[in-house]
Computed example of a mutant assay.
Amino acid sequence: MKILKIILMPIFIMFVLNGCVINRENISFNNEYVDNESIKYISNKTKDISIGINSKEKYSIAKRPNTKWAGRGNELTVNNEFNEKVLKSVLEQYFEKINISEINNEDLFIDAKIINFEWEPIWGGQKLDYNIRTKVYKKEKLIFEKEYNKEQTYTKLIATFNSTSELANTLQSKTLFKFYNEEFIPDLAKALKENP
């Protein structure tokens, strides 16, 4: 029996390290994940513009990490609902009327889609990379279109979370929230200024 265990142990280790045992995690968003990134103190929100976020296209992207060894057995999935909730949370800081909808019947209509994402576990956190395509319509006229690539590395955070699931959800949410807040919002403000 001891010999059998010795023979099977390396096979089991290779099985796990090669990712044949997969832990699948659907990324979800919670406003608490981004409290430190938020600038909720803005009081002069735009009240006269209603904004719609396109929810018509349903998609999900599942990815295993960009690494040969660590974390190969983990698979993270992001989808349109996660993206829409993060974008809505960012927009709510600047505008009062935000609606997630399949129909373009608002003053502004934002079509933002995650094209691809990559992730890699690193000591104390994760390295994340998002590709996002955005289009903004004002009264059905396209006023802005851009594809972004956002790379972010978070470290020394692993000890603050109770589970790998909470870590993944928090870091993915923070990365996407920071992208929309720091890159997309300034571009949106510029597009609105150029298209009164």
Rank of each mutant, 00 (worst) to 15 (best):
residue 2 K to R: 05
residue 3 I to V: 11
residue 4 L to W: 03
residue 5 K to G: 06
residue 7 I to P: 00
residue 8 L to N: 03
residue 9 M to I: 06
residue 12 F to A: 15
residue 17 L to M: 12
residue 20 C to P: 04
residue 20 C to Y: 13
residue 24 R to A: 15
residue 24 R to Q: 13
residue 24 R to T: 14
residue 26 N to E: 15
residue 29 F to M: 07
residue 29 F to C: 01
residue 31 N to F: 06
residue 32 E to N: 15
residue 33 Y to V: 14
residue 36 N to D: 12
residue 37 E to R: 01
residue 38 S to T: 13
residue 43 S to Y: 13
residue 44 N to M: 13
residue 44 N to Y: 15
residue 44 N to P: 07
residue 47 K to I: 05
residue 47 K to G: 08
residue 48 D to V: 14
residue 53 I to H: 02
residue 58 K to C: 05
residue 59 Y to R: 05
residue 60 S to Y: 08
residue 62 A to R: 09
residue 65 P to M: 14
residue 66 N to L: 04
residue 67 T to D: 15
residue 67 T to C: 11
residue 68 K to H: 11
residue 68 K to D: 14
residue 69 W to N: 12
residue 70 A to T: 15
residue 70 A to Y: 10
residue 74 N to G: 03
residue 75 E to L: 12
residue 77 T to G: 00
residue 80 N to I: 08
residue 81 E to T: 13
residue 83 N to S: 07
residue 84 E to Y: 07
residue 85 K to T: 03
residue 89 S to A: 14
residue 89 S to Y: 04
residue 91 L to H: 08
residue 92 E to L: 14
residue 94 Y to R: 10
residue 96 E to C: 11
residue 96 E to D: 14
residue 97 K to A: 12
residue 98 I to S: 02
residue 99 N to W: 08
residue 101 S to C: 05
residue 101 S to D: 11
residue 105 N to S: 08
residue 105 N to I: 12
residue 107 D to M: 00
residue 108 L to T: 00
residue 112 A to W: 02
residue 112 A to M: 10
residue 115 I to P: 03
residue 117 F to R: 01
residue 117 F to K: 02
residue 118 E to N: 13
residue 119 W to H: 11
residue 119 W to M: 11
residue 120 E to W: 00
residue 122 I to V: 02
residue 123 W to S: 15
residue 126 Q to E: 15
residue 129 D to M: 14
residue 131 N to L: 15
residue 131 N to A: 12
residue 133 R to K: 12
residue 133 R to V: 05
residue 134 T to W: 02
residue 134 T to H: 03
residue 134 T to L: 10
residue 135 K to A: 04
residue 136 V to Y: 03
residue 136 V to F: 04
residue 137 Y to T: 04
residue 137 Y to V: 07
residue 138 K to A: 08
residue 138 K to V: 05
residue 139 K to A: 08
residue 140 E to P: 07
residue 140 E to F: 04
residue 142 L to K: 09
residue 144 F to G: 06
residue 144 F to W: 02
residue 144 F to V: 09
residue 145 E to C: 03
residue 145 E to R: 08
residue 146 K to V: 09
residue 148 Y to Q: 05
residue 149 N to I: 10
residue 151 E to R: 11
residue 153 T to D: 02
residue 153 T to K: 05
residue 156 K to R: 08
residue 162 N to L: 15
residue 165 S to N: 06
residue 165 S to M: 02
residue 166 E to F: 08
residue 171 L to N: 10
residue 171 L to Q: 11
residue 174 K to H: 00
residue 174 K to Q: 01
residue 175 T to L: 01
residue 176 L to K: 11
residue 176 L to E: 09
residue 176 L to T: 11
residue 177 F to D: 15
residue 178 K to L: 15
residue 179 F to W: 10
residue 179 F to G: 00
residue 180 Y to T: 13
residue 182 E to L: 12
residue 183 E to S: 14
residue 183 E to V: 06
residue 184 F to V: 00
residue 186 P to Q: 01
residue 187 D to Y: 01
residue 188 L to V: 04
residue 189 A to Y: 06
residue 189 A to G: 06
residue 189 A to S: 14
residue 193 K to F: 03
residue 194 E to L: 07
residue 194 E to A: 08
residue 196 P to N: 14
